[in-house]
Simulated scan of single mutants.
Amino acid sequence: MPSPDKPRRAPDLQRRSVLAGEAAAAAAEVETALTGPADPAVAAFFDVDNTVMQGASIFHLARGLHRRDFFTTKDLLTAMWMQAYFRIAGVEDPDHIAETRNSALGFIAGHTVTELEELGEEIFDEAMAHRIWPGTRALAQLHLDQGHRVWLVTAAPIEIARIIARRLGLTGAMGTVSEVEDGVYTGRLVGDLLHGPAKAEAIRALAAREGLDLARCSAYSDSVNDLPMLGLVGDPCAINPDARLRAHARAQGWRIRDYRTGRKAARAGLVASTLAGAAGGAVAAALAVRGRRRP
């Protein structure tokens, strides 16, 4: 039987999602990617992991930071275990969500923003650039060519999201925002991870700020977790979808694009992405608080 205080925690989770979304929209910097006349009311929103990029961007980032002694193997293994448990048993449990977030942040506080940004540039070149799906990249370019703005919307740290968007020539990015004091991360997120409902809140906030007509906008994702984002726009599209999103997209008559080659490769990719997510998801909160340990 649920404890008496459980119902009172749902509004707190909603509040965190709203704060995360508003922070992500406020932190989104408009790039100068458009070369033709823009249609200011139209934009396209792309999830990153397994939509724009093969695998989890945060996992590729985590591996690169680990190689650079950003954190210890023990830290990484602990984060992997916590995220695996979170995915299996704790998705709907506010207590476990809070515990996962707080524990993951413990070893990252006190690191600097500048160093993570510099390392992020290196890691993009060595681990992410060759993992961009050409088909998804072509879809994003098609929107740009039509004068639409194109935004990434991801749970990855906003600094890393900006790097990916800039390297792909997109308009900008929204990602998880962390509290910073004097260029150093405090270990606290602004709201929560930009995940699930928080992505929808970010898009709503950006649409209000930029004057977007969401009924004319598009959104792309591989995951059923992004239904709140996909359901906001008039043109949702499932990219490399998981089974639940594929079924939902078919039922709704949404576009579906799958850039994976062959059923065996697709199944292998799903297994790999699940493992990557387990490794990367928990450290997403940690890495979102960005920076490198000081000596």
Rank of each mutant, 00 (worst) to 15 (best):
Met53Val: 15
Val30Asp: 14
Asp222Thr: 00
Arg166Leu: 05
Thr154His: 02
Ala44Cys: 07
Gly110Ser: 11
Asp93His: 07
Gly135His: 10
Ala24Glu: 05
Pro236Lys: 00
Gly187Leu: 04
Thr274Ser: 14
Asp5Ile: 11
Pro7Asp: 07
Gly120Ala: 07
Gly280Arg: 04
Ala44Phe: 03
Thr35His: 12
Glu117Ile: 01
Gly64Gln: 03
Asp93Ser: 10
Glu31Gln: 15
Ala282Asn: 08
Asp145Met: 09
Val42Thr: 11
Arg250Cys: 14
Ala219Arg: 01
Arg263His: 09
Gly281Asn: 04
Lys264Tyr: 02
His148Glu: 00
Glu179Gly: 03
Ser57Phe: 03
Ala138Thr: 15
Val233Lys: 00
Gln141Val: 06
Leu142Cys: 10
Glu115Tyr: 00
Leu19Trp: 10
Ser178Leu: 01
Pro134Ile: 09
Leu212Gln: 03
Leu245Ile: 05
Arg63Val: 12
Ala266Leu: 07
Leu144Lys: 01
His248Gln: 09
Arg9Glu: 13
His96Lys: 10
Ile132Arg: 03
Ile88Lys: 13
Ile203Ala: 00
Ala205Pro: 09
Ala20His: 04
Gly262Arg: 06
Val177Leu: 02
Ala265Met: 03
Ile164Glu: 01
His130Arg: 14
Leu270Ile: 09
Arg188His: 12
Ala41Trp: 09
Glu121Arg: 13
Pro228Tyr: 04
Gly231Met: 03
Gln252Met: 09
Val233Ser: 00
Glu31Lys: 07
Arg137Cys: 09
Val224Thr: 07
Cys237His: 11
Arg8Thr: 12
Asp49Lys: 08
Asn50Cys: 10
Leu61Glu: 05
Ala205Asp: 14
Ala251Tyr: 10
Leu194Arg: 01
Pro295His: 08
Leu168Pro: 01
Arg167Gly: 01
Glu179Val: 06
Arg131Gln: 12
Arg68Ser: 01
Ala127Glu: 02
Arg188Met: 05
Ile158Pro: 01
Arg255Gly: 09
Leu13Val: 15
Ala27Met: 13
Gly36Ile: 07
Pro295Phe: 08
Pro157Asn: 12
Thr136Ser: 13
Ile158Trp: 06
Glu210Ala: 12
Phe86Gly: 05
Leu193Arg: 02
Lys199Leu: 06
Thr114Asn: 03
Ala215Lys: 13
Ala268Cys: 02
Leu212Ser: 03
Glu179Arg: 10
Gly110Cys: 07
His143Cys: 02
Ile158Asn: 12
Pro134Tyr: 08
Met80Asp: 08
Val224Gln: 06
Lys6Arg: 15
Met82His: 09
Arg131Ile: 08
Tyr220Ile: 07
